[in-house]
Design a protein around this nucleic acid. Structure first.
Lengths: 246, 246
DNA sequence: GGGAAGCAGAGTTCTAGAACACTATGGCGA
DNA sequence: TCGCCATAGTGTTCTAGAACTCTGCTTCCC
């Protein structure tokens, strides 16, 4: 949300507001939103601007638009959207397993395009990169690489990251609390770098999770990229169908 | 592209034209397109309309737009493939996209251990196996193999499975409604059989989902095993932290 | 009853322009 | 020489409409 300049376009603000309404439950799944012209009036913008906001929400899968019918809050049931996912990346500790983090390295560097876009960085802006290995019961479970905007990274780098968890450092040193994140999981094969750290052969199947975390203020703070070999992890979820077709 | 009505919006036509230029090599990777105002003039439309076309191309990963610099033909890097596929991911959730199912084959056969255990079958009990291909926008998205206990399978087999969705057949022929399911997702590499059906190379990364669905009565009804190539799908979720530590 | 026409409500496409923001570059002053 | 600043070129955001299409419903006529 944050822009280099501080100015946040109106359509992004509107998208954020609607996102809140949906997440906050003010608009529940299947509910119809006010029609676009009414919403435009409510936010005091043109139809075109409002539609830009809806475009975003639709792309994120939060709403569905039906020509001639209306705009609806998407039902998350059919999607592979894992809402009730307990057992994932960061949440492993919730299962009572002994999770250990091994600090590998950190440096400042130019981000790749995806990271830059996720953190809303301008061209040429550097990031602070933090590599670590997560171990469960002493066995490598995931290889995690976190990217932070350089400004934030400089402060974080002062902490002893071999001991302090990243989120603690953010909280104590900078007063930043993560309130929201978006995670996308891909199926990939491991390349040699990751495979070496994880102690397995290159080319074996793995999950790659890319997560963007936002602070309360709305600025993206951390971009996490996690690799987990497919033989060590699976995602599972419960589904219940009540009136809704599977 | 095609519309029911025959009328194709101008911005889609423009997108298609530009797509041709890029695919045809008239514009090679890294090349800069004319600036947006010039393109708008060329196509005889407004800047807004032209931008709608560019929006599409960007979402498909064919171009990259850089504020202050210009619009460029994207180099076909993995980065972009995946960005593009994120939109693909949500699409599977019947958000207005045409999801088509192609029936491949069916037969009775002995289940493997996991299926037998999931369906709570005794030793030697056969299952009805149903293979199908799911296509989104005409492209193969997933290869799905469903297993049903033989007794149920015999009834289901009487339906024309090339036309009737499995769940409809269960509901109409047998009055069985699925109310609950458990799904587990693994990261794997495709073996040749699945790869062939999906039209890709063996060895590429994929998701494998194993799902057990139960009827209201509590009996396991279907065991689904789905393969989705990693380049066509991703799982994403929103996370919010309220008082809970990430 | 059943079909066709019409209507209202909702999303979609498009115009013509204006103001703004980002990037690179080149000149000017210290 | 170095750094700052102005500027040109490009993408971005936004306005204020107007005309169009799609869907579901109602009404009217047979």
């Amino acid at each position: 949300m944050a822009r280099v300049n501080g100015r946040v376009p109106r359509y992004l603000q509107i998208a954020e507001t609607l996102r809140e309404r949906i997440r906050g439950g003010a608009l529940s799944a299947g509910a119809r939103l006010d029609n676009q012209r009414a919403l435009a009036r409510e936010f005091g913008v043109t139809l075109m601007t409002l539609r830009q906001a809806l475009e975003l929400l639709e792309r994120d899968g939060l709403i569905v638009r039906h020509h001639g019918l209306g705009t609806f809050v998407a039902s998350p049931s059919i999607d592979y959207d894992i809402l009730h996912l307990r057992t994932f990346a960061g949440d492993l500790s919730a299962k009572g397993e002994a999770v250990e983090t091994r600090f590998l390295a950190s440096e400042f560097r130019q981000p790749d395009r995806r990271v830059a876009q996720g953190l809303r960085l301008g061209r040429g802006e550097a990031v602070f990169v933090l590599d670590r290995l997560r171990l469960v019961k002493g066995h490598p479970m995931s290889y995690q690489r976190s990217f932070l905007p350089a400004g934030i990274g400089e402060e974080v780098a002062k902490a002893d990251l071999a001991v302090t968890p990243l989120r603690s450092a953010l909280s104590f040193k900078l007063g930043i609390e993560i309130t929201r994140a978006h995670e996308t999981v891909f199926a990939v094969t491991l390349r040699s770098r990751e495979a070496r750290e994880l102690g397995c052969r290159p080319g074996i199947p793995a999950f790659r999770s890319e997560r963007i975390s936002w602070a309360a203020a709305g600025a993206p703070i951390v971009y996490d990229r996690v690799f987990i070999p497919g033989d060590r992890f699976s995602i599972s979820r419960e589904l219940t169908y009540e009136g809704v077709r599977p």
